[in-house]
Computed example of a mutant assay.
Amino acid sequence: MAVTLAEEIMLLSLDDDSGLIKQRQSAGWAVAGAILLELVLAGRVSIAGKYLELTRVEPTGEQLLDSRLPLIETWLRGRCKRRVTDWLTKDQEKGVGATLESLRGRGVVGETEHKVLGVFPRRRHPEADGSVVRALRERLEAVVVMGAEPDERTAGLIALIHSARLHRLAFPGLSRRQVDARMAEIAAGQWAAEGVRAAIREMQAAVAVITIATVAAVS
């Protein structure tokens, strides 16, 4: 399977030189939302209103996605549905770790460790195969800057980047003003079935609310 949406968001957030995650909190929410979106597109999860429901548990064949299915099933605790925001909050940190592990397994990033103040271990994930992120940035630029029509997955990716305010990571050479209107247009466009677009709107709202709250708490 091609690189997942969550892996693409993670690649955009990793500094090419240091291997550290930029905008870690916001990127984490977007990664968790991207995993959930992939499960929606794969027909394993449905989202209606502010709630998510597990609809199928058969493996998709993608380990990053399949690892979330039993976790969601356990988290639901016999209920038919729970809030999207609650799942994103629960899976944000673990989802980042699982996504980095998946990228390492693909050989796209490496892993090094150093100690902060000589005591606290800190992992870095330097680029190992730059062709993947270069192709990703070219795809995003073609759609957002050059006006090409996005496919379903690219539109979903842009919607998540937009809601998590990751514009600078996706388009480091451009101001938010230069890309914001086009990204909003794509997020609201007729690029997928209504059920998928409704799910994206709810995840956008959830990611945006959490991101704004996180920024406010640390400012």
Score class of each variant (00 low, 15 high):
Glu185Cys: 07
Arg24Tyr: 11
Phe171His: 02
Ala98Lys: 04
Ala142Asn: 14
Asp17Ser: 08
Ala27Gln: 04
Val132Asp: 06
Arg139Pro: 01
Pro126Lys: 11
Lys115Gln: 13
Ile21Lys: 00
Val132Cys: 04
Gln63Asp: 14
Ala205His: 05
Val145Ser: 03
Glu8Gly: 13
Asp86Lys: 10
Leu52Arg: 10
Pro121Asp: 05
Ser13Gly: 09
Ala148Cys: 05
Phe120Pro: 02
Ala98Ile: 03
Ala164Thr: 02
Ala199Ser: 14
Ala208Phe: 03
Phe120Leu: 15
Glu7Thr: 01
Val133Lys: 00
Ala30Tyr: 00
Leu5Gln: 14
Thr112Pro: 01
Glu202Asn: 11
Glu73Tyr: 13
Arg168Ala: 14
Val57Asn: 06
Gly110Tyr: 05
Lys22Trp: 02
Arg44Ser: 13
Glu58Leu: 06
Glu138Trp: 10
Ala34Gln: 06
Ala98Thr: 06
Thr74Ser: 13
Trp191Ser: 10
Gly19Leu: 04
Gln92Glu: 15
Ser219Val: 07
Glu141Met: 07
Lys94Ile: 04
Asp86Asn: 14
Ala170Cys: 04
Val40Leu: 03
Glu185Pro: 09
Arg122Pro: 01
Arg124Ile: 02
Leu69Met: 07
Gly156Pro: 04
Val215Gln: 13
Ala32Glu: 08
Leu174Ile: 03
Gly105Asn: 11
Lys22Glu: 06
Asp15Trp: 08
Arg83Lys: 15
Ala216Glu: 15
Ala2Pro: 12
Arg124Tyr: 00
Leu174Met: 14
Leu136Glu: 03
Arg134Pro: 00
Glu113Leu: 11
Thr89Gly: 15
Ala199Val: 05
Ala6Gly: 07
His114Asn: 10
Leu36Arg: 11
Ile35Cys: 08
Gly195Phe: 02
Ile72Glu: 06
Phe171Pro: 01
Leu76Met: 11
Val133Met: 00
Lys22Phe: 00
Ala184Trp: 07
Gly97Cys: 09
Asp66Phe: 02
Leu12Ile: 00
Ser102Arg: 00
Gln63Leu: 15
Gly43Thr: 03
Gly118Phe: 11
Val144Asp: 02
Ser67Asp: 14
